[in-house]
Design a protein around this nucleic acid. Sequence first.
DNA 1: GCGAAATGGGAAA
DNA 2: TTCCCCTTTCGCC
Length: 281
Amino acid sequence: MPEGHSIHRLARRHDRLLVGHRVAASSPQGRFAEGAALLDGRVLAQTHARGKHLFHRYVEPAAWPQDRDAPSGPDDRWLHVHLGLYGKWADGRGEPEAPRGALRLRLVSDAHWFDLRGPTACELLTPGERQAILDRLGPDPLDPACDPAPATRRIGRSRAPIGTLLMDQSVVAGIGNVYRAEVLLRSRVSPFLPGRDLDATTWSHLWEDLKVLMEAGVRAGRIVTTEPDHRERPAGRPRRVDATYVYGRTGLPCRICDTPVEAAELGARRVFWCPTCQPDP
DNA sequence: GCGAAATGGGAAA
DNA sequence: TTCCCCTTTCGCC
C-alpha cells in the first residue's frame, strides 16, 4: 500500500486520533528502544506527510497546547517514519493486545493504540535533519501548495526514461510503482520515453492527473485508476482486479485496446505498459 | 517448510 | 548496477 496517498492518509488519521494526546511509547522488538524512550510521556503536537515520508512532532506535555502549529522549537522531537516496501501501521481503540511478531514501535494514548512494523526508517530527527529530507524531495502532487516547476525542469533536461524519473523521489515525491504505471497509461505515454522528449502539454496533463488519482487514493484508502466504463463490472465498488489498467496485469488484455500488457525491469523495478496505447518512442 | 515477491530506498561497487 | 535491509504473505514442494 505505501505510495504517497497512504502516507498522507496516515498523517490525517494520526492527526485526528492522536494529536493532543500524551503517548506511552515502546519498542517491543527493541530496535527503536532508545527513540521510544525519548518519546514516552510526550504529546503529539503535529503530523505531516511529504511524499512517502511521515513526520510526527512531539512536545513536552507542559508545552501543549500553546505551541500547537508553532514553528519547530529546540525541544521538539521529530519522529520520521518511512514504510518502505512493506512497512505497516495498524491502530485500534482501547487497550492493545500483547505484542506479536516484530513490533518496532507502539504508541498508546488514553483512547487508541498504534503499532508500526517493518519500516525502512523509524528514527528521531533534529529539525535540521528533517529539513534536509524535505529539501531533497521533489514537489508532492498531494501538497496543494506545491509548485510542479522544479519537476518540469528536471524532466525537460533529462535523457532518462520518464518511467524512471517519475519514481525518482527528488523529481516528484510520492509516486510508486502503481501510480507510475497507471498515470503513464492514462496519458498514453511510454515509460521509456526520454524525459526531454515529453511535450509540455502532455506533462501538464499528466501532473494534473497525478493529483486527481492520488487525491482519490487518499479518500478511498486504496489505488483505483480505472474509469467505470473500463471495468469488467462498472457498477459498485471496484474489485481489486478492476482497479488498474496495467499494473500487475502482465499478459492480460489492456483495458483500452485488448493488447496483452507487457512488463520489464526498469532500474530495479518492474514496469508495466500497453505496447499499443504506449508505443515505444 | 521454504523461497520468492511485494506499492522502497540507500549504500557500495 | 548490485547488494542489502526491513516483514508478511503466498505459492509451491
